[in-house]
Design a protein around this nucleic acid. Structure first.
Lengths: 187, 187
DNA sequence: TGGTACATGTAACATGTTACATGATTTG
DNA sequence: CAAATCATGTAACATGTTACATGTACCA
């Protein structure tokens, strides 16, 4: 039920087309909530029906026409209301942890290889966040709500990636002692 | 596509009924993959059709009859195959972070209150994990695959909860400086 | 000539959630 | 006497994923 509100959050900042939203959901807000264009177009239809956004066709030359969506007053009200509702921590759901749980019945070498993959991915993600930290949030401090909120989001990302990196290293050491790694496990 | 395999992991250890599985998915494996009874019964039907499990009706006296599921050889093979596939990190999806992203357009006090709620929940979860650590995994060290896998899962849980607790405290301090807390924000 | 960016959608399917449905036994 | 536990399921709906579908403009 939160894709609707995530879209409203984006539109509260500025009017955007479905295409623009799709890109936003791959980067900025995408760090906290993922959605692809199919979901976004479907949800925009509903938001229109609910009266939380309205769309205007914009004719462009050289490019296909687009439909730019703007949040309505009802949409803004909905957003504030939603922020007051309860948002419990989403449960962890992770295949890798399931393979670990069933380690006796799976390929231990393959699991270790997967953890190595994760380690790389988390390191890359951390570097990305550190770059963002240096470039975007280098100065802001006593700033506006948006800056504070995003700096906190970034901080969580940094903490999160560091915790995972730490764990991956620990897990690899542990698994390696248990079943020494061979390099032929990867597909 | 992983609920099927999560069920197979459980059944690889021991035969279980749908009801038993439901309970397992609320605790042990439930820390890594959540599912309710509706999903489990639906999936068991498919697993039966795929030939990965077979179920036997067990007549009980005093209690309703039950259907106990056992993993087949094909099921075990599937599990090993699955463990060799790629398991990329699941994307973060969290309402609270969306409210933070849109902090300028929501109720800041309510967001702070939500973070307080989270802090409490993560502390409780951490205590639970620490209890499990003391009681269940106090001794095991050079042990079998299952023990190693579960100890690693537990370690991740501990790291994860600690990272969140750390962040919640930081976030509350930051938000408090920005917009001093009032106690009337909760519903 | 092929790839990427722009731009919007539908259809089918898989997965997850909420509600409904039934009924015995045990525990407080 | 009410609630929880045991035990299994269906139905409807919401959400997420994969594939299909179309067409222009620009760049190498």
């Amino acid at each position: 039920v939160a894709l609707a509100e995530a879209i409203l959050v984006c539109l509260a900042e500025q009017p955007l087309s479905g295409y623009d939203l799709t890109k936003t959901f791959q980067t900025s807000i995408g760090f906290f909530w993922r959605a692809d264009h199919q979901q976004i177009y479907r949800e925009l239809r509903r938001l229109r029906e609910s009266g939380w956004v309205h769309g205007e066709a914009v004719v462009q030359s050289g490019k296909p026409d687009k439909r730019v969506y703007t949040i309505t007053e009802a949409g803004r009200a909905r957003l504030v209301e939603w922020s007051r509702e309860s948002h419990p921590a989403p449960p962890v759901k992770d295949d890798l942890l399931v393979t670990l749980y069933g380690l006796a019945d799976v390929d231990v070498g393959a699991v270790a290889a997967q953890i190595t993959q994760r380690l790389t991915a988390h390191r890359e993600r951390l570097e990305l966040y550190e770059r963002i930290e240096r470039t975007v949030y280098a100065d802001v401090d006593g700033a506006d709500a948006t800056a504070v909120g995003r700096a906190l989001g970034l901080q969580l990302g940094l903490d999160y990636e560091r915790a995972w990196i730490h764990w991956c290293r620990h897990a690899l050491a542990r698994l390696d002692a248990f079943a020494p790694a061979r390099d032929d496990n990867l597909p």
